[in-house]
Nucleic acid binder design. Structure first.
Lengths: 131, 131
DNA sequence: CAGGACCTACTACCACGGGTTGTAGTGAAA
DNA sequence: TTTCACTACAACCCGTGGTAGTAGGTCCTG
């Protein structure tokens, strides 16, 4: 980060603000134009891509670009980010089944009920891209 | 950490080594005696307690002390640590159900099958203390 | 058709700060 | 005296986030 660059998280917050103000999916180029800070295209692209990778944004193809948007339910962003982090932890280990077994063992009965429902009735949160 | 203290992770490794060499659960005092480094009781106690808190060790009451031991299957330590980290992530959020729903949505069919089994047949890894 | 614009994935470097770990004291209880 | 939970401080370092270039591919225009 060169002198004069943003504080940690500041760019991401600006990007999120753009998307919230827009109310429709935006491509990297559109966000870049909105920010108007002389940033490199790839800086904004990386920010959007990272936000998507950590579950904070959804994206859909728009021509040969991607258009990024906030989750349908913005309040769900936190849940999505946390879930993705959990998934990454699960992926980082070697004994996947062992991890899952222990994770489940620590759940409370309410959680178990919910999971059972989700797994048996195939309910899924909708509208999010599967990577 | 005062000058001459251990590198990060070294104390934990020594403690784990004690437990592995012993082959039976050890109390803080016993580990302290084994290490024999002039450490404060509470230093060793904190190390053991933290290892337990992150899922690396199990413990059982031994009088008014706790006796710590490696998991029954030492290979399972990694899985236990990862599972605990996942649990802590889940606990850190606000929308528990939303997190779980999204986490499950990202699982592969094999994982789902396993989870379904665990949840419906009540299988649990045995011998570990529930906190 | 060639060149430029646009886009992505990949890569890389740097700053930073939050989480982890070593160390240990205190207070209360047994 | 021993033990635990709680608390606290300092050092460290890994993951995160800002920044941006490169390579390869697609599309559009002159």
């Amino acid at each position: 980060m060169a002198a004069g660059g943003r504080r940690r998280g500041a760019l991401e917050q600006e990007v999120l603000g753009c998307l919230a103000a827009s109310g429709r999916p935006l491509t990297v180029a559109e966000v870049l134009a909105e920010l108007g800070d002389g940033l490199a295209y790839t800086t904004v692209m990386t920010a959007l891509s990272r936000l998507h990778a950590k579950g904070a944004l959804t994206r859909e193809p728009a021509g040969r670009a991607f258009a990024y948007s906030l989750p349908a339910d913005p309040a769900a962003m936190g849940a999505s980010v946390t879930a993705r982090r959990m998934s990454r932890l699960l992926d980082s280990g070697e004994d996947r089944a062992g991890v899952l077994a222990r994770f489940v063992a620590d759940l409370n009965p309410e959680d178990e009920r919910l999971l059972t429902e989700l797994l048996t009735e195939g309910r899924r949160p909708g509208g999010e891209e599967r990577s």
